[in-house]
Amino acid sequence: MIQKLLDALIDIVLWIPRQLYGLLVDAVELMLTWIPEIDIVDLQGLFDGLGGQLLYFLTIFEFDYGITAMMTALMARFILRRIPFIG
């Protein structure tokens, strides 16, 4: 009897945050529809337009490895920050 009463009280107290969360999710979904789509049809054509000198320096500086290392480090930082007592 007391457990049912406590469960009902908890449901009443948590009803408002659940409704606010639902409204927030709906608002985010609506805002995501406002973002325009970017059409990149020919990615190779985009890189062909960069020019030989820029591609030479990107190759010398190992740009592809640098971007991969940066993204890996950012993902590791994000994951480690989510672990309690570490982040």
Score class of each variant (00 low, 15 high):
Q3Y: 08
L5P: 01
L6D: 00
L6P: 02
D7Q: 10
A8H: 05
A8Q: 09
I10S: 04
D11R: 06
D11T: 00
I12T: 10
V13D: 04
W15K: 09
I16S: 04
P17M: 10
P17V: 13
R18M: 03
R18Q: 08
L20N: 05
G22W: 02
L23W: 09
L23E: 07
L24T: 08
V25H: 01
V25W: 00
V25A: 14
D26I: 03
D26Y: 02
D26S: 08
D26Q: 12
A27L: 14
V28G: 02
V28A: 06
V28Y: 04
V28R: 13
L30P: 00
M31V: 10
L32R: 15
W34Q: 08
W34H: 06
I35F: 12
I35Q: 11
I38K: 07
I38L: 13
D39N: 11
I40F: 13
I40N: 10
I40W: 02
V41I: 09
D42A: 08
D42V: 04
D42E: 07
D42F: 04
Q44P: 00
L46A: 12
L46E: 09
L46M: 12
F47D: 02
F47Q: 07
F47C: 06
D48P: 00
G51I: 02
G52P: 05
G52Y: 03
Q53V: 12
Q53G: 02
Q53H: 04
Q53M: 07
L54P: 01
L55P: 01
L55N: 13
L55Q: 15
L55E: 03
L55R: 15
L55K: 15
Y56R: 13
E62W: 01
F63C: 10
D64W: 01
D64P: 00
D64H: 03
D64M: 03
Y65Q: 15
G66C: 12
G66W: 05
G66V: 11
I67F: 04
A69F: 14
A69N: 04
A69I: 07
M70K: 11
M71L: 15
T72A: 12
T72W: 11
A73D: 01
A73Y: 11
L74Y: 13
L74E: 13
L74D: 03
L74I: 13
M75C: 06
A76Q: 14
R77W: 11
R77S: 06
F78W: 12
F78Q: 12
I79N: 02
I79C: 02
I79G: 00
L80T: 10
R81L: 09
F85G: 00
F85Y: 11
F85H: 05
I86P: 00
I86S: 02
